[in-house]
Design a protein around this nucleic acid. Structure first.
Lengths: 201, 201, 201, 201
DNA sequence: ACCGACGGGACCGCCCGTTGTT
DNA sequence: AACAACGGGCGGTCCCGTCGGT
């Protein structure tokens, strides 16, 4: 027995993929349907068979952006067992998303979060919030494990350190977006790798 | 000769002030004229006597946002003569803009920068870019002065350190915007103050 | 030979029945296909296997509405032999359709007639017209028979009297539809019963 | 001093007048903006300066239809002092609206009432309801006055008689709309005039 | 200088009917 | 026979910028 993908599911996947690329550059809310029609090669009627409104499409497009980046990070975490390795890999992976982007437009969490904070979509705001919280929790939990394992100094506050790491990375993403210059990313990456090293037990 | 403020100038000032507050929350591009009319209490015809189009108003609103925040920072730099004092004051001032905001909506450079990166306004993008560059240059020049003065360790790279500081601050602004929780700001502020201290000669 | 109802015919019947109920309330033209899909539990493709377009479905839905009401009237005419009995039964039956409606939404002839007069469906307009003419003819012929039978006064004009009776009933239906109060129906029913009595020979 | 009508008011009046004529034929809800644009010679942007949405325009168009007909009736009531004269004039006037229509499309109360009963506009439904109630009250009050004046028989029930009169008229309007034949109106008019006469004291 | 009216167009959502697939 | 996918277009609403009038 062969599991076949239905025609509709394939089309829906195609819509989300193309729209994700587009919206991360042009805005998850601000992107007009006309541009989505262009990149998907579909008419409005076709799009509305898969999504009840543009917001739903935007949410799924955001989820897809997030999933793409998450997959890259998880790929780079494969086989990394020690806390130091894992934190180093995470920083390199997340900064790598700006150096060698899978997705044009920069960090979708920043893009969606800033746009949704305008008050245009509470749901999108929640998605961005949850995505960021997931990253913060990942770092904090990794650090907490490191403290238990005596890989990380006992006086390190996992939550606060997670905030510092994510803030520094996201800030660098913003600086490089503003100046269209990835050197900010590289500087911050090296800084954070040294920062992590300085916290080792 | 007496310098009087013309009626027209006063009106224009009023428009910019109200629009700046609005646009920093609702978007410098995304805010519709209808909302500007509401907050200014003026009709479209009146607005267009002062600005050739919405983009020009957005640019001046952004400049006003930036000026407000800059004034606060400069105020807190008054009388601070040593490099350490000045850097400390800068970090406290800039973080203070999120703790006790003069302007709802967070950092206008981030807001305008992310929105304009959609490609909707090259001019606004340039403004945001220049504003950020100004801050980076301020920090870098201050650090360079500190090295010359032997207040700052000689191996500190002024530009790179400026990037690290601004990235960390802006990242914290983003985190607090996403989670609507200023604790990220407080954590980062303390972190950066310690960071600066660690660079002293 | 056994008469079986084919599967297809059963489905078609189901569509017409549900759509008739819906359209008499929401409009024979104005009801969108989406609502028809809801009440029938079918998809568009399924519906279009039985009807070439929405107008054809509307026509058959109207016919079904009319048939339902006609059946009730004819049921109440069963066994009524004298002209007076038959006219009385007709008035009671037709007014009864508003007092104890078989079909929500009021008189389908009025509903379809007013809507179709917008010029949106000449065919529906003709159906409503024919339905009303059938009622007028029934009354007029019954009266004519009554005159011949000497049950009804000879100076009664059958056609004019039919107009008066149907106008009064339909007007009451409209008044009760507007005010959502069936008292208008009751008043008119009693009035018409007395009116008929006054025309007896 | 000359009282001038502002430009905008004149345009608004023009829009309402043309739209009233159109909507009473094509539907107060069903008429698309494209047709309103045609008959008014204006673009959508221009229309929306005067009405916040189509429903508001529909309401004012209905009010205008009603006002036109009301003016004709009141004109014919001028100088009529006795109750019999006034009721006779009312019936002739209201039936006259179908014989020599000021407004194509028939009775706006019926048109709006039937359409709004589809559930598309509660406000329009209320307007139609109020308009009809006004007419019923006028007749009932006139009859009550007649009873007091001993022009009308004491056993006449004003409210019930008002219902009968309005129902009969509106029913005739419907019949003539369906058959596109005003003879129904003429028949009913003569019938009602005789009916009123039979109620005189 | 400011208001109000207006054009012309872009926006999203929904419409109906057809087609391919099961 | 039924569903699901899709096209192409119309629906009302809101957009921005201009222009005449005050």
């Amino acid at each position: 027995v062969v599991f076949t993908i239905k025609k509709g599911e394939k089309t829906k996947k195609h819509i989300i993929e193309q729209t994700a690329i587009l919206m991360n550059q042009r805005g998850f809310i601000a992107t007009p349907l006309s541009e989505i029609m262009e990149v998907t090669g579909m008419q409005k009627g076709g799009l509305y068979n898969h999504f009840k409104d543009k917001e739903e499409l935007a949410l799924q497009a955001f989820d897809h952006c997030y999933a793409i980046n998450k997959a890259r990070v998880e790929e780079m975490l494969l086989g990394k067992t020690t806390v130091n390795e894992r934190l180093t890999a995470f920083i390199e992976a997340y900064c790598g998303l700006s150096e060698d982007p899978l997705l044009p437009g920069g960090c979708p969490i920043m893009n969606a979060g800033v746009e949704a904070a305008d008050g245009q979509s509470l749901k999108l705001q929640a998605r961005a919030q949850n995505a960021m919280q997931y990253l913060l929790d990942f770092i904090a939990e990794t650090l907490a494990t490191g403290i238990i394992n005596q890989e990380i100094q006992a006086d390190v506050d996992p939550k606060q350190t997670a905030t510092i790491i994510m803030a520094t990375i996201e800030g660098a993403v913003l600086l490089s977006k503003l100046s269209q210059d990835i050197s900010h990313i590289l500087i911050v990456k090296n800084h954070l790798l040294a920062f992590i090293k300085s916290k080792q037990a």
